[in-house]
Design a binder for these strands. Structure first.
Length: 266
DNA sequence: CATTCCTGTTGGGACTTACA
DNA sequence: TGTAAGTCCCAACAGGAATG
């Protein structure tokens, strides 16, 4: 636990480093900010902060730079949350009162609002849900021989494919099968739907081979898609939209490498 | 034009001193 | 005795002058 003096020194170092992008030394802190402490005292506190992991030193005689732990502490404990003006509140309420269709749109809107309010580049970052779960499946009739098989997961993804309706099977029966399979698989992680489980469904519920093959193929496709998305561990949306300046948005999915899409930004 | 050397500046560590 | 402050010395770096 940091005492008040350490907190104050850490705060000044972080703010100085943010504004200058240069390592901050004890003498700089003593001279620029009236703390009533000598550089030697500040140096001792900085040494403690370095031991505690809040500061790092690029090389022996350079000043100190804040660590990731220091930034976390700064955001959580050192800065005072500002108060929203009525205009800001109205802007936010206006954006979110509109019904949006996807998570992506919500991210875009959030980044835009942040950018407009702060007049800075904003970035919205979220962890992807790595384990989508089966929600339900449904058959939608196309004609008397074909139907669309739709599988829905709890993260809102939908996969579909056209299936042949087995000869002599009525749509009501298809609907009944969909209900039974949905109940059996509901809440299960896609990755956890095993061959054994699918075989049991094949035997007990959907004994038609073609129908079963389509079902398995669709579940596997969704599971694969989910795993691919999960490999992109973070998703973020950046925006730069100060009033009166041309817009520039960029969306990037980040993984171990780099991939991006979007337009407008060099 | 690239490299080397010199000098000034900045900052940290170690040690000593002053004081409550 | 612990803490704060002062001082000395050394290291790293930047910038300018000298040199090949």
């Amino acid at each position: 636990m940091l005492n008040e003096r350490k907190k104050k020194i850490l705060q000044l170092i972080i703010e100085d480093y943010i504004s200058t992008a240069e390592p901050v030394g004890s003498r700089t802190i003593a001279r620029k900010y009236d703390l009533g402490l000598s550089p030697a005292t500040i140096r001792n506190e900085m040494s403690d902060l370095e031991l505690l992991g809040y500061l790092e030193q690029p090389h022996t005689s350079a000043g100190r730079v804040p660590s990731a732990q220091a930034y976390r502490f700064y955001v959580d404990s050192l800065i005072e949350p500002g108060t929203l003006t009525d205009n800001d509140r109205a802007l936010i309420n206006g954006w979110y009162s509109e019904r949006r269709r996807s998570i992506e749109e919500i991210f875009q809107s959030t980044a835009k609002i942040l950018s407009r309010m702060t007049q800075n580049v904003s970035m919205v970052l979220a962890n992807r849900d790595v384990s989508a779960r089966f929600r339900y499946l449904k058959f939608l009739p196309l004609d008397e021989h074909k139907a669309i098989l739709c599988i829905v997961t709890d993260d809102g993804n939908v996969d579909n494919c056209v299936v042949e309706i087995p000869l002599g099977m009525r749509f009501e029966e298809l609907d009944y099968i969909a209900g039974r399979i949905s109940r059996l698989l509901e809440g299960r992680e896609l990755a956890g739907i095993t061959e054994d489980l699918l075989s049991a469904i094949h035997t007990n519920v959907a004994d038609d081979k073609l129908l079963f093959t389509s079902l398995v193929r669709s579940i596997r496709r969704m599971s694969r898609k989910n795993q691919e998305q999960s490999s992109f561990s973070w998703w973020y949306q950046a925006a730069f939209e100060p009033a009166g300046i041309s817009r520039c948005r960029k969306k990037v999915k980040k993984s171990s490498g780099y991939s991006g899409r979007g337009a407008g930004c060099p």
